[in-house]
Amino acid sequence: MSLAEEVELLRRIPMFTNVETSKLKLLAFTSERVAFHAGDVLFHQNEMGSSAFIIVAGEADVMVDTPNGPLTVAKVGRNDFIGEIAILCDVPRTASVVAVTDMTTLCISKDLFFRMVTEFPQMAVEIMRVLAQRLENTTRQLREAVAHSASHPM
């Protein structure tokens, strides 16, 4: 896959939709393309992370460890951006990600990610937007969950 195609892929990711083409090209050029086989682990929960991934092709399960064994909490696929929390706030990985199919990803190292964000504030704004949206989702889910448990007291 050539650089031009990767740029097109990046463009389809919401976070990058509004970023200039030349910046996306730089991001694609300076990040590494990494392939995973089905069953490979992209990263493990509680490890310290040093990179985030953009899924170019393939699917993966997001799993968290529970007392009853690993639990799949979400599925991620093409165009999803994963692993950014660990590099944004220096916490261990909050979940494991396991490839379900063969995958191709763009691996963005922490250094590179921060440099891009500081270099191009526009991108930082986009990332904020995505994160805020996620926060909003999570808050809504929490609200619903609380409402649910309130209406069905144990």
Binding site: L3, S22, K25, L26, F29, T30, R115, E119
Partner: peptide
């Protein structure tokens, strides 16, 4: 041409030059 497109906007001496 690609290098100019990618790197022309970066300040001189930026780490990317050396790395990429």
């Amino acid at each position: 041409r690609t290098m100019i497109e990618l790197f022309a906007d970066l300040p001189p001496g930026h780490q990317f030059f050396e790395q990429f």
